[in-house]
Design a protein around this nucleic acid. Structure first.
Lengths: 129, 129
DNA sequence: GTGTCTGCAAACCATTTGCATCGGT
DNA sequence: ACCGATGCAAATGGTTTGCAGACAC
């Protein structure tokens, strides 16, 4: 975590944020690395991970804590829901309104202080059948 | 996947299922390995992973696709929701009724065929503050 | 000039897998 | 006896980290 220090505007940072915001595919770190390489051939995977982590900490992007082996990233920082295809792993946004009442209901049933929730649907995408 | 073959009743399988069903902590594979070792000192971590995977495929237990670096397992095979502590990672059951209407609503907003959903709350547990 | 950021390579850690042997049926 | 299951150790794959040089400010 580095919330106390200055964030410098580097070329790598600019390109990563720019490319991530252009995509609606919720790419993995490696997918974004492959894309960024076209503009910055010498960028390293380590830099991609460090910057995605940093930008997520600062609320500029979202690190999605969803199913699957790899983490995915979302240029849209506003909380929203997703659908994942069971067969191909494709992850789409879902236009279902955020249900903030869920947090209140959950809070009444537990001793935890509820901060937020994440909701992910699983299904089969049109391309997979 | 091995849904077409016979499942044998081995001592390792019995112990793992028995111990998992006694716990309400949603252990990781390694935590369950440490517990099982007390009864079967020669059991291997590979066997733990293989059996948890197999039992999940057969619907005897649940593999939880939730946040965090390690997968967690639940001896309760019936779908239900969870709360995770942001600080210590503790994962508790949440007594909120399963909302099956969510799948219907989601289905109307996407081309995916919705099969199920997972809902995880994030908060701070009483022990952490 | 100072302190952050980068590329590179090595390290890490959860999980998976190949293989010879064991054991349930 | 057959074939699935096990223990062991090595391999895998995503992610993190240490370090010396580069760059933003």
């Amino acid at each position: 975590m580095s919330l106390g220090t200055t964030i410098r505007v580097t070329r790598q940072r600019q390109v990563l944020l720019d490319e991530l915001c252009k995509l609606y595919t919720h790419p993995t770190a490696d997918e974004l690395y492959q894309i960024a390489r076209k503009r910055l051939p010498r960028i390293s995977l380590g830099t991609v991970y460090r910057n995605l982590e940093l930008m997520a900490e600062h609320g500029m992007i979202q690190k999605l804590e969803v199913g699957g082996t790899q983490k995915r990233f979302d240029g849209n920082a506003a909380p929203h829901y997703h659908v994942r295809c069971l067969k191909c792993g494709r992850l789409d946004d879902l236009n279902l309104p955020l249900d903030l009442d869920l947090d209140r209901q959950a809070g009444e049933l537990t001793d935890f202080t509820i901060l937020r929730h994440s909701l992910e649907f699983t299904g089969i995408c049109p391309a997979c059948c």
